[in-house]
Design a binder for these strands. Structure first.
Lengths: 110, 110
DNA sequence: GCTCCGTACCTGGTTCGTCTAGGTAATAGC
DNA sequence: GCTATTACCTAGACGAACCAGGTACGGAGC
C-alpha cells in the first residue's frame, strides 16, 4: 500500500490502541496489524519516534517493566491523550467524509 | 484541519476532478474546495508541483490556452491517468476501511 | 558452543509530499 | 496609482514515515 496515506493517522491509531489499556511498542504493532486485517504493519522507525513524540506532548505516560527476562516499556494514555484521541477521531471522520465528497462517494455517514 | 492527513490524497483528488473533464490549476482548487464542503483548500505550493509530477508520469497531458487576457494551462487525464485514478480510489477505500477497523468503526462497507 | 529466530527497544540519516513565502503578469474597480 | 482577483511558477523549509543499523535476552536445534 501507499505508505503516504498513513501520514497523520499513525499517531491516532496508536492512541486508539492505548485507549483500551496500557501496551508497549511491539504489542501495539501486532494490535494495529490485526485490527487492520493485516493491512498496516507499523515500522519501528515510525513507531518509536511517534511514541516519544506523543510522550513529549504529554499525551502518553510510560513505565518500564520486566517480563520473562525482556524489558518492556508500557505506555498509557494521559487525560490529555484521551482528549486528543477524541479530537483526532473526529478530524479523521470529517477528513474521510471530505475525501469521499470529492470522490463522489457521499453514501451514508452524514 | 490537520494538513498531514492530506498527504497522499491530493493527487488522487486532482485526478478525480480531471476525470470529469479538462481543467486548470486555479479551477481545480475551487472544485476541490466546493466538493469537500469548504474543507480542503489546496495550496499552490502543493498543487503546481503535483500537476507537474503527474504530467511527468504521463498521467496528465496539458495545453496552454488564453481566456480574457489570462493564460491558462488546461490539464486532462491520459488513459494511464484514468487507470491510476481507479487504482488510487480502491487504495483509498481499503485504507479508510483499515483505519476504521483500527478505530472500531467497521459499520457497513464490508 | 554456536547459530538462528523471535521478542523488545532505540536512532541517524534519507526520502518525499506539503507548505510558506516569494515572484511574474493581466484585468477590473476605486 | 493602488488593491483585489485571476493565473501561473518555484526555492527552500518542515516534518512524518522509513531504511538500515545497532543492542540485548530467551529458546530451539545441532
Amino acid at each position: 500500500m501507499d505508505t503516504k496515506l498513513l501520514t497523520g493517522t499513525l499517531e491516532m491509531m496508536m492512541l486508539e490502541v492505548l485507549s483500551q489499556g496500557p501496551s508497549y511498542g511491539y504489542e501495539i504493532v501486532q494490535t494495529v496489524l490485526s485490527r487492520s486485517n493485516g493491512q498496516f504493519e507499523l515500522k519501528e522507525g515510525s513507531l518509536y519516534p511517534a511514541l516519544h513524540r506523543l510522550e513529549r506532548q504529554k499525551l502518553l505516560g510510560s513505565d518500564w517493566s520486566e517480563h520473562e527476562g525482556r524489558r518492556r516499556k508500557y505506555y498509557k494514555l494521559t487525560a490529555a491523550g484521551r482528549k486528543a484521541l477524541t479530537a483526532r477521531r473526529s478530524e479523521w471522520q470529517s477528513f474521510a467524509q471530505g475525501v469521499n465528497g470529492v470522490l463522489g462517494l457521499d453514501y451514508g455517514i452524514a
